[in-house]
Design a protein around this nucleic acid. Structure first.
Lengths: 222, 222
DNA sequence: ATCCGACTTGGTCAATTGACATATTCGGGT
DNA sequence: ACCCGAATATGTCAATTGACCAAGTCGGAT
């Protein structure tokens, strides 16, 4: 029982809390369960954290940041846009369901944050991070393949995030991985149809499936 | 204080529970809060329900059935496939976020059901119902417009459910209705490209954007 | 009318939980 | 050595919650 710094204890408690939530759900994440998981007496909790909410708040921040990191897709440069998109989506999907236990945690955390008014901004920040990463990925894929999108990238980004997020939720109910991959491939094929070759003379207004909506940007209705 | 039948009490308690969850979240849905919301003494609860789990189980069943009903899209017969799809998606989307309070309830219920092993089948049943409704709607739209899909309908159905579900989750964080509608319109335009005219000579193998996946059906990996 | 069973009520109990108070122990700077 | 603050352990408390009991009250069938 070596003596540890409070900061280390905090990290260990955060990790233990994540394990408890992944295993038993956020409802079972009591201070006693968390400290027991970390192998510490319960009183340590309130020495390292002012309250349980403080731990959860920090847990959300850390988890979201970690996922945002993994969502930064390091794709290989592929000349074909469809293969590039498909590879990127596959990598993202794998990152989402890699530890199947932790998949449900994200949704529990999101709903928990949405319920606490002081944590709602974290959920918003989480989604803004997703959208940002999707924007960057779409742009990168298009550049690598020498194409450009015929639909505003923010709309495509939101669609991408929506598909991945919804797919994760559906995969939680039935664990139908084959169906999920089929949907991903279908979606990749769709995205490929929304790219046009980037020729030197392609400066005219882009045609394509522009929607009736005005040019909706990332945040259009506060 | 008129005397009521136990069956009526059950219905009133279910309704009160739904209101409590919509307002304060499932974590605050205690037996006392529910009975107080219904204006009854707390002891009534265990006279009408064997346990709190029994109420929640029935609540999930009722809520899912109700949503499945509303998801049965009564679309007007539109000749144009894209307009038909768009109208149907708009109706479905409106049904989802019509009472904005109850939107979050569905996700809380789903995660709650996924945590309790004896309720996990309800979540599965919920999604199976969604897929079934999506299948029927897609088929109906195609028939009305005199077209047929160039991609297996089960895949399109899963994609549709995924998009709507994910869109609802993203809408919960930022309430960006304009962006959501833009995504829906974009998705409708996409679906329209996957339909081909149904001519009498169109019995040859359908071309189009068939994916690399084998013909995944509704349930392919148990 | 009356009697039986369905309905109603207030009160209580054991368990859990977040929070804290108090006491003790360690370790390094001087 | 020594001493002060950081770290750790033990114990307890008030509040909440799910569950349930025992005693009532009412209505309709006979």
């Amino acid at each position: 029982m070596t003596r540890l710094a409070a900061a280390d204890r905090r990290a260990m408690l955060l990790d233990a809390a994540l394990r408890v939530i992944a295993r038993d759900g956020i409802a079972e994440a009591t201070t006693r369960a968390i400290t027991a998981e970390a192998g510490m007496p319960q009183s340590v909790f309130h020495y390292c954290f002012r309250s349980k909410d403080e731990l959860l708040r920090e847990l959300i921040t850390v988890t979201v940041a970690e996922l945002a990191d993994r969502a930064e897709l390091p794709t290989h440069p592929l000349p074909d846009i469809e293969q590039s998109v498909r590879a990127g989506l596959h990598a993202l999907w794998k990152a989402i369901i890699d530890p199947p236990d932790k998949q449900l945690v994200l949704y529990e955390i999101t709903t928990y944050a949405l319920r606490n008014p002081e944590l709602a901004d974290l959920a918003r920040q989480q989604y803004a991070g997703y959208l940002h990463a999707a924007n960057r990925s779409l742009t990168a894929w298009a550049e690598q393949a020498g194409v450009r999108w015929t639909v505003p990238v923010p709309i495509l980004a939101r669609l991408l995030v929506t598909v991945i997020d919804g797919l994760g939720l559906s995969w939680l109910t039935d664990h139908d991985s084959a169906a999920a991959l089929a949907v991903i491939d279908q979606f990749a094929a769709h995205l490929a149809t929304l790219a046009e070759p980037l020729t030197t003379s392609s400066l005219h207004a882009a045609p394509g499936h522009a929607t009736t909506s005005s040019g909706a940007v990332e945040r259009s209705a506060p």
